[in-house]
Design a protein around this nucleic acid. Structure first.
Lengths: 164, 164
DNA sequence: GGAGATTGCTTTACATCTAAACTACCTGCG
DNA sequence: CGCAGGTAGTTTAGATGTAAAGCAATCTCC
């Protein structure tokens, strides 16, 4: 995610204010994500993309298909193909084709993958707590509600059908 | 930016709640960013990375060095090298070495680049207004303040020194 | 002046991501 | 049956991003 954008041609004040709000939202999220990515990389040699994929598999112990993974991670099929290939090479996941429908590739965590994910998840949770923990219960609730409003509003007029 | 993550090993309820808050923040931002990127690409054949870089140059009519660009965009030097090279090939920016310090590469928008950026900025502003415009003035102020709190809190204990 | 550190940028190797074209398989319908 | 069309994945080409190594110009300090 990149930051920065325009302040020129404000046109009207409301547009300029919304632009600043968007830049703040983007900058805040990006800063946290980069910090998490950096720590994950240094501590576990694992990218957020890999961690997210493993997290989905950890929630579905009987495995997921490639398509299901790409929907949940909200990335393209081709992206999942590459991610899974590298995780297979590292011995963290396995893939096998479904005997009932040979188009389907079913992906599961290996024991190693599950063990690594478990260790990462604990530390990841601590990091998130550290990075967001200064917010009080009231602020957390307010922020959560506002974000839900923003996402719902932004999704109108979009045929994205995100995970909502 | 990828989405999704863990819900397993909640450990304690507070961690789980903060994790959900983080996922919501990430998901909301990502959804808006993807929508903007898609529209920018379809309408102008331009990525957000290019748009952001041009926006920085538009704010500094006498040009910026590569290093200044990489600091403002919060990306690595190598990344800027490639972005600028492609924009030069497209005739949207020019680069020339500084005669006083031959290490410096000064980058400026061309007339074409400035014209294109102007058109993009107007439409981009409208899109942001459309995507965030459902928020009332009160909500905008509250969200902005909460995000500032989050970023400030997250930046403590980090030697990132982001654009703050 | 000049050795050594620093600064600014590029290069390299690689991961991650998209869009679009392609392949293989399944399903339904005549 | 047999093929038309949809579904699941892969492949390809290319952009964007990082980290780390390298190079050249400048600065520092004696």
């Amino acid at each position: 995610m990149t930051e920065a954008e325009i302040t020129s041609s404000p046109h009207d004040e409301r547009t300029a204010e919304l632009l600043r709000l968007w830049l703040r939202l983007l900058g805040t999220t990006t800063a946290i994500e980069r910090e998490l990515a950096q720590r994950m990389r240094q501590r576990f040699g694992c990218s957020l993309a890999r961690f997210d994929l493993m997290a989905q598999l950890a929630k579905s112990r009987d495995g997921l298909t490639m398509g299901e993974l790409s929907r949940r991670l909200m990335v393209t099929n081709g992206n999942v193909t590459g991610l899974v290939r590298r995780l297979v090479e590292e011995g963290l996941v396995v893939r096998e084709s479904d005997p009932d429908d040979r188009r389907l590739q079913r992906v599961r965590l290996t024991a190693d993958g599950l063990a690594l994910f478990g260790r990462m998840a604990v530390v990841h949770g601590r990091w998130v707590t550290e990075l967001l923990g200064d917010l009080g219960p009231e602020e957390r609730r307010a922020l959560s509600a506002l974000l839900a409003r923003v996402k719902a509003a932004a999704m109108q007029g979009t045929d994205d059908r995100g995970t909502a």
